[in-house]
Design a binder for these strands. Structure first.
Length: 292
DNA sequence: TAGGCGTGGTT
DNA sequence: TAACCAAGCCT
C-alpha cells in the first residue's frame, strides 16, 4: 500500500461496498462506460434501472450506433441532461468508425470521445482496464479534501495541488489503483457525504484533518440558481412532449406545453443546436432520426 | 472560467 | 419546503 490511508479505506470498501452491476467482474467496458455517463450528476438509485434497460437494448457500441439518436433520447427517459444521450450515441458511432467497435483502454483516447471528460476517461481506463489513472470525482475530492487538507468541501475547480495529491496517493499497480479509487468514491458516497458525514463509521476518522479541526463548516457559496421559469425547465418540458410522442409533434403541441412564445422559440433553437430536436419540411418537430 | 445544462431524491 | 445535492461536460 502506498499510503497510510489505503489499507483502512480499501478494507472498509471490501466489507461495505454496494453490489453494483458495473462493478461486477464480468462487466464489459461498454457497460462501465455507459454507467459512468449515466452517473454524471445523477444518483445511483436512478441509474440502476436505466443502465440495465440500456444494456439490455444495446449490449454493444455497435448496437447503439445502429439506432437513431432519437431512439437514444427516448431510451434515456427522464434521467436528465439528455445531451448525454446524444453524446453517448455519437460516442458509439466513433467507437465503430475509429476503434473497431471497442472501448479504448487509455484515458487520453477516451477523453476525445463526446461526453467523456477527464473524470469519465480516467474512471473507464481505471475501472474497465486497470490503467493507473487518478480518478478525481466530487466524492474523491471531498474525502481527500477533508482527510488531508482539512476543508469541508472542495473548491469549484480542481486545483493542481489536488491532482498532485491524488497522484501521490495512487498505488503503483493499476489494479490496486482502481480498487483504491473506487473505495474512496464509495466512502464519499456512503460515509463522508456532503451534508451529513457519518464519522462514527469512518475507517480513517482517527487521522482526518477536518475532524481534528472540529469539522469546520464550508464557506458560504454563491446563491443557488433557480430552475422555475428558466430555459432549462422550458427545454425539459418541450423534450418531454417529444419523447412521449411517436413521430412528429406540431408547434401547437409545444405551445401547449410551454405557452411563453419567446422563451419557447429560444429553447427550441438551443435544443436543435444540441442535436436534440429536428425540424421537418412541414414545420413539425421530431427527435433526431439521423446523425446531428 | 463561469455559467448553462434535467430530473428527482433528500433534508 | 425551498434549497441542496447527485460518479461532470462543454463552451
Amino acid at each position: 500500500m502506498s499510503s497510510p490511508y489505503a489499507a483502512p479505506i480499501v478494507g472498509w470498501y471490501q466489507r461495505n461496498a454496494r453490489d453494483l452491476p458495473w462493478r461486477r467482474p464480468d462487466a464489459s467496458p461498454w457497460s462501465i462506460l455507459v454507467s459512468e455517463i449515466m452517473l454524471q450528476q445523477t444518483q445511483v438509485a436512478r441509474v440502476l434501472p436505466a443502465h440495465a434497460a440500456w444494456l439490455e437494448r444495446w449490449p454493444t457500441p455497435r448496437a447503439l450506433a445502429d439506432a437513431t439518436p432519437g431512439d437514444a433520447v427516448r431510451q434515456w427517459g427522464r434521467l436528465g441532461y439528455p445531451r448525454r444521450a446524444i453524446r453517448l450515441h455519437a460516442t458509439a458511432g466513433e467507437l465503430v468508425a475509429k476503434h473497431n467497435g471497442q472501448v479504448p483502454s487509455d484515458a487520453a483516447t477516451l477523453a476525445q470521445l463526446p461526453g467523456v471528460g477527464s473524470y469519465t476517461a480516467a474512471a473507464v481506463a481505471s475501472f474497465a482496464f486497470g490503467q493507473r489513472e487518478p480518478v478525481l470525482d466530487t466524492n474523491v475530492r471531498r474525502v481527500l479534501g477533508r482527510l488531508i487538507a482539512g476543508e469541508a468541501t472542495p473548491r469549484q475547480a480542481t486545483s493542481a495541488a489536488e491532482r498532485r495529491m491524488a497522484e501521490q496517493l495512487l498505488p503503483q499497480d493499476g489494479r490496486q489503483a482502481a480498487r483504491w479509487s473506487v473505495a474512496v468514491m464509495e466512502l464519499g458516497a456512503l460515509i463522508c457525504s456532503a451534508t451529513s458525514p457519518n464519522c462514527q463509521q469512518c475507517p480513517v476518522a482517527d487521522r482526518c484533518r477536518w475532524k481534528q479541526a472540529g469539522s469546520p463548516p464550508a464557506p458560504p457559496h454563491r446563491p443557488g440558481v433557480r430552475y422555475q421559469g428558466t430555459d432549462r425547465q422550458c427545454r425539459g418540458a418541450l423534450l418531454a412532449v417529444l419523447r412521449a410522442t411517436p413521430g412528429a409533434v406540431t408547434p401547437d403541441d409545444l405551445a401547449a406545453a410551454w405557452p411563453e412564445a419567446e422563451q419557447r422559440t429560444r429553447s427550441l433553437a438551443s435544443l436543435a443546436a444540441d442535436g436534440l430536436v429536428a425540424e421537418l419540411p412541414d414545420g413539425s418537430l421530431t427527435l433526431p432520426t439521423a446523425s446531428a
